[in-house]
């Protein structure tokens, strides 16, 4: 740029600017990808070591094996923790779906300040740190005389999962068209019939999504469970005790399986929520009526 001509200068500036823009964009992409690497490194690590033929959790790689997956079935404690944890979670899902939906419907249809205040109160256990909820419930159960075991854990999990179901279903309820309910009432259906035939079908996907969320929240819970469990451990409690005192590669194997199942569940749940697909509709009436329209 020896020439002092005015027309040359802007061209130089523009190319500098575009070069800067390219560099900035490269940096942005690099940062963006770096975060994903950061997010997935731990998960991939666990997955890789589930197949590593060594009892030591360190590099170098000592060969591929499936023995840790086979060992899951032979580890009696692990297996009983798995089945106990599953039964806790299934009970929690069943009760939380019904109770949470009921609360959402009640809060949505009632007027005045009372339902809002009660809703705010019911949400508290989902927000406070797990150990605070766990300790407060442990104190209560001790004073009331509820023994530590299956039911104390189930009640503890219900305390923080019911509000989650309520909020998810309530969000859906508030988006529904009220004229459908009014039409149903005008046609002479009572409150229950209207709920069952008009409101509930529109809530089904929201309830399903909330149930899946509840399942993972409950199945994964450690701290509250720690306060409320008796001698029988749930799976996360078992993993917790194992990972603190030593290491068994079966843990990596079972965690990899659960991770894979969770991802399949989340994919189904997001598909259901995104597309409003009703997985129960199948080839039934609903599908046909949709095509007819």
């Amino acid at each position: 740029m020896t020439s002092p001509e005015v027309s040359v200068a802007p061209a130089g500036v523009i190319s500098m600017e575009s070069a800067l823009r390219v560099i900035r964009s490269l940096f942005a992409w690099a940062g963006f990808i770096a975060v994903y690497l950061f997010l997935y490194t731990p998960l991939v690590t666990i997955g890789i070591f589930a197949f590593n033929d060594s009892t030591v959790q360190a590099l170098p790689w000592s060969g591929f094996t499936l023995q840790w997956f086979g060992a899951i079935g032979q580890n009696g404690l692990l297996f009983s923790a798995l089945t106990f944890g599953l039964s806790v979670s299934l009970l929690v899902v069943a009760v939380a779906s019904v109770v949470g939906t009921y609360f959402a419907v009640v809060v949505n249809s009632a007027t005045g300040a009372a339902p809002r205040v009660l809703l705010a109160a019911v949400i508290i256990p989902a927000i406070v740190p797990g150990m605070v909820l766990g300790l407060s419930l442990a104190i209560t159960f001790r004073l009331v005389g509820i023994p530590a075991g299956l039911w104390s854990i189930v009640i503890g999990h219900l305390a923080f999962t019911v509000p989650v179901v309520t909020l998810v279903v309530l969000t859906r309820l508030r988006r529904l068209d009220p004229s459908l309910t009014q039409a149903s009432m005008d046609l002479g259906a009572n409150g229950w019939r209207t709920f069952w035939h008009v409101t509930f079908p529109q809530l089904r996907t929201a309830i399903l999504a909330a149930a899946l969320l509840t399942l993972t929240l409950s199945f994964d819970e450690v701290v509250i469970t720690f306060f409320l469990a008796g001698t029988q451990q749930t799976l996360p409690l078992f993993i917790w005790s194992q990972t603190r005192f030593g290491f068994t590669p079966e843990i990596n194997a079972i965690v990899t399986i659960i991770g894979a199942v969770s991802i399949v569940l989340i994919v189904i749940a997001t598909r259901v929520i995104e597309r409003e697909v009703d997985p129960f509709a199948g080839t039934g009436r609903k599908r046909r009526s949709r095509r007819g329209r």
């Binding site: 998960l43 994964d220 917790w240």
Partner: peptide, 18 residues
């Protein structure tokens, strides 16, 4: 970004130990 939330919290923490 959200998928890791569905993997057990305990496991994600444990992975950092490894």
């Amino acid at each position: 970004v959200v998928v890791p939330l569905w993997i057990s919290y305990l496991v994600r923490v444990y992975a950092w130990k490894i």
